[in-house]
Structures are given as C-alpha cells and as structure tokens.
Design a protein around this nucleic acid. Structure first.
Lengths: 332, 332
DNA sequence: TTGTAAGCGTTATCAA
DNA sequence: TTGATAACGCTTACAA
C-alpha cells in the first residue's frame, strides 16, 4: 500500500502538503493540488485510517452497541442509525452485548479503544454507575431505550409504561376484563415498565389478573409459545392475551393455532414494538408502535450535532408509543 | 487515558517490558511482571488498540460486509459470524453495502483501511474483477454466497440452482403442473440461479410456464405482494406459486388472504431460505433451507484457520440446500 | 502557500 | 530477561 510519503515524493512536495489535499481543509494552490492528486491516483493511494486516527485522535466512526445482531428490533435500529451516519460520511462500527454485563463492558471498551468519536449504546445489563463513570470519560455517547439518572440528556427513550397502559386500556375499552400477560424477562426495565402500564390500566378500572395468568417470557417467539401454554394449562378463563412484544405475540398465535384456538375469536392478542412483519402475521397484529428506527436516527443526529457540529434538524430524546390497530383484537 | 509510557514509569521498567506483559508472548520474570500488572491496575491502563494496530499491522478484528443490517437473512449471518469470532477473541466490524456497487467498494475500502486482519464479504454488486484485484492485496477475505472464478477456495456458497430445482421438483411430485414464479431481482446471481433450477425441474417433465406468470420481485415482502397481484391479474390458471425467497412468500400469503384466497387450498406456496419465522407464518411455510448461519460460522472458521492459525474443526466451502416440508403445499 | 519536525501509543529489532 | 530506539502512517503547530 502506498503511503503519504511516496505520494509526496512522486509529487515533489512535502508530507504536509499531501495531507492538506487529502483533508481538504487548508488552502493549497491549484497547481500543487493537481500534482498531488495525480500522484495519488498513479499510486492508488488510500489513506491509512488507523494512522489518521492515531495522529488526529478522531476516527470519523461511531461505535454502536446492540444486544443482538439479529431480530427485527435491532435490525431496524441498526439500519436507522447507519443510514443517518453514512449520509454524513461517518462509519458505524457495530458490536453486540448479548444482554450480558461482562460482554457489554468488553464491547464498550473495544469501541472506546478503537477511538470511536462517539458511541450509541443499547446497553441493558451494565449498571447505571458504569454508564455514569463512562460519561466522565472522553468518548461521548447516547443511550437508547434507557434513562440513566444524571445524564438524561443523553438518553433516548420511549415511555414503555405508557405503551403498556395504552395496550391494555384499548382492550378494556373493547370490553375485555379477563387478561393474561406474557412479559419480557423481569430483569429488563422495559419489560417491567410495560407490565406496570398494564397493571395501571387494570387498576384504573378496578380489574385484577390471576397470578397464574402472568408468565415471564424471553421476548422471543419461543417465549410466546411457552407463555400461552402456561396460561392455557392454568385452566382459568381469559379473553385477551397481552404480550410484552410482537415476537412473543407471534409465537403465541402460532401456538394457539396448534391448539385449534382461533385468534381473535377465542381470545384477542396485542403485541408491542410494531416490528416489520407484524403486518404479515395472521391475523395482522394489533400492537403498540415502538419507533425504533426513528429513535436510532435521532441517536445519530444527536451525535452528529454534538460531536461533529453537523445540524440535521430537530432534536428530541423522548418518544411516544402509539396504538396500531389491526386485526388481532375484537370487541367482546 | 493512561499510556504505556506512564505505566513503565510507575513500574520502573522500560516501555518494552510493559509491552511484553501486555502481549503475554515474551518471557518476563514473575517479579517484574507483577510490578507492571500492579501499575497497570493502579492507572486503569487499557492498551490503545489503534496504536497497537498501527505498530503491529494487525488489529484482531475482522471486517464484515453485508448488504443490509436488517432482515432475517443477514441477521442470522451476522450472528453466526460474530459468535464464532468472539469465541476466538476476535472482533467484528460490520459495514453495509446496500447492494450498490459504489457503496460496497467504499465499505470494503473502509474495512481494509481500518486494518482488519481479514474480511468476510457478502458482496453482490461489485464485479468479479474488483474482487480478483482485491485478492492480490494484503487483506485476505472470504466471500459468502458467490463464486468468483479464480478464487473459488475463498468462496462459501450454496447451490442455489439445486435449491430451485428441489422446490419445483417437490411440487411436481405433488401433482402440480401449472406454476407461477416470483423471482428475486434479475441482476442478482442467486435469484437467477434459483429460477434456473426451477426451469430445469420443469423441463425435466416437459412442463412450461406462461411468461405472464413470471414476475420479478425484490426479495422483500412487498415484492411478494406485488408478484401475486401480477400473477392474479394475468388471469391464467396456476396451482403453485414458487417464491424466490421466504420474505416474498410471506408477502404473497398475506396478499392472498386479502384477496380471500386460501393457501394452500387455492394454491400452494413454497419459499427459499428457511428464515427464522418461516415456522411462524400461517400456513407454516414449506421452503428450501439456506443454512446461512452455519455458512457464516464457516466463513469465520476459515479465517480463524487461515489468518490466525486457530483450528476449529472441519472446513468446507460448499453447502447443500434441502427441503423443509411444512404446511404450505398440498397434493393436487 | 509550503515545508520542517514533533508527536500520536504502540510493537519489534537489536544489544546488553 | 531487560532496555534503547527505530519504525508504523499520519496530523498539525510553527516557521519560512
């Protein structure tokens, strides 16, 4: 690989001048600029971005931590972020945390070590203290789907509690009073918040739910299957199943069909997230929208604005869930 | 951030010695090693991986190019690769190419520029020549889902033609003779190969297909919707719809339901890929398995073996598609 | 507008 | 087993 040194030699100018034309910042006379550009072309010169990072202490790349590299939720998030950043000429370095404390820390340290100019974190397992400590470091970051007290302005979040409330409220308005609930993992804040919203909607109407009709799932399709099985085997009546997310709703619907139960005739189902294929399930899934792609874009915009001083429009950190009505819930 | 220099000072040893204990390769006496480790702990020292890369010309990270960051296909691929690499202590840097020649080239150059030790590429838009040229460079790579003449040993592929053949053969055996086909984008080799397999199965039985019942889709759900609409409006009889991939099959099934058509009673549908939620569609989708996660792992293993000399078991580059029978096809 | 030279934080080659 | 010291490829004062 040709180095800047060879280019300077061939062009008959100094290193500094080559660097100037590469970075287009300082003024270089048209004549010398052309000599340099020709030399670069002739040698097929590409700047070594590692060396650039080391010397300039910036890398034009943003580190992104997600829990998993698969699944509709993170897929939408990664896409939203990458598109926004790429449009601004920045690169995204993705690492996964697998919802595990140690792995999340490792990944964050990797990204910091790679001299990312900023970080976008979907960190679930790491403690508030860790993030607070991180915020004292030199790498700025924004957090998605979590509010850390003390650094709220760097947290992009959706009101999960309100979303949970909306879902159950909607079913109550449709006349439902007997509920089953398949939640996400209890250690996850968003799962707990969604359930809290559900409880609030219930309480508002003086309704309660049998403990056997609350089952903890895993936010995956298998959790929905399992959840429904548990509810069914409790042998207690319910007319509506509220799922912590769409993937579990999808699993539950499939399981229901296997048990010769029909959704929504035998019971209604509502999900959460509005993942890309919610509209392609049968029945089409009524759900709460989690605008994760937009939130990802916003995270990117925040960084563009704060770290690179590139303005890209309105900035917000709070997003509101909203009901998407489709076919999986009926009036009672 | 503490540097190696400060550590050496605090520990009262030379830079070189600190470097040795960091890299655990050369022998260092236990006594000095301990002094260094203590100093490192005290200063919270973390090696700057950028500087390491520059000096050592390797980065312990592997670049991964995918077409998109979302979708079940790439999700599975990324997961498979990252898991395998992480287990070996390597990091994955992901970039997306959006099936666009220029973007793919940019991304590859970015990854090379970041001094990735090796690359895993799902490159669709870039030419064979470009890849051949790249193979003369210093960064080794393996290609997924494509065979480039001249560097076959670095190409991991599935026999798409055979998969296409299997799908249609299966339907023929079930008694179908009137087919419709929604293909992937024609400029994509895998889409063409799958269709070629379909034609071969047809030809084998002296069957043909009306040109109006071949429509070019986009490998996404919207393409499946559109494809079915086109076939329907052709007003020609068909009993089986072969889709270029599962996502389009999902779109077609949904569109069919909207038109009050029942799958598989009105016509059978078969997909391709066996994406994660094929089992959660209604009807459960019969499809051809594309073991993309395994292929991703294999790509990682190949690199681990060739670039790092880490052996992780059997290596193969050719994978075979196989039929996954579910509920979306019936006997005629 | 251009050039000189001192870093950036490591690794790696020699000697000692 | 250790220590000097020259790379690695680039950016960026500071001078000219």
């Amino acid at each position: 690989m040709a180095t800047i040194y060879e280019v300077s030699e061939l062009a008959g100018v100094s290193l500094a001048t080559v660097s100037r034309v590469v970075n287009k910042n300082a003024r270089v006379s048209d004549k010398t600029k052309e000599k340099v550009l020709n030399a670069m072309k002739e040698l097929g010169y590409k700047p070594n971005s590692i060396a650039q990072s080391l010397a300039s202490n910036r890398s034009n790349s943003i580190g992104l931590l997600v829990s998993e590299l698969h699944g509709p939720f993170f897929g939408a998030m990664m896409s939203g972020i990458e598109a926004e950043l790429r449009a601004a000429g920045k690169h995204t370095i993705i690492a996964s945390g697998h919802s595990d404390e140690k792995t999340e820390q490792d990944s964050i340290e990797f990204l910091v070590g790679r001299k990312c100019d900023a970080l976008i974190l979907h960190a679930e397992a790491v403690s508030d203290e860790f993030l607070l400590e991180l915020s004292k470091g030199t790498t700025p970051f924004v957090i998605i789907n979590r509010i850390v007290p003390g650094i709220e302005e760097h947290c992009i979040s959706l009101d999960n509690e309100h979303g949970g409330y909306l879902a159950t409220k909607y079913l109550i308005e449709k006349g439902h009073t007997q509920f089953a609930y398949v939640s996400g993992p209890n250690w996850k804040k968003d799962a707990r918040d969604r359930y809290a919203g559900h409880l609030r909607a219930l309480a508002e109407q003086g309704l309660t739910q049998h403990p056997k009709l609350l089952v903890e799932g895993n936010f995956q399709q298998s959790g929905g299957r399992y959840g429904l099985e548990q509810c069914l085997s409790a042998n207690l009546p319910f007319t509506a199943l509220v799922c912590g997310n769409d993937e579990m709703a999808s699993g539950a619907i499939t399981r229901a069909r296997e048990a010769d139960l029909s959704v929504p005739d035998d019971f209604s189902i509502i999900g959460f997230d509005n993942i890309i294929y919610a509209d392609y399930l049968f029945p089409k899934l009524t759900t709460i929208e989690y605008p994760v792609q937009k939130m990802g874009q916003m995270a990117a915009k925040l960084i563009l604005a704060n770290t690179y001083r590139i303005e890209t429009g309105e900035l917000t950190t709070e997003f509101t869930p909203r009901l998407i009505e489709r076919d999986s819930c009926v009036n009672l």
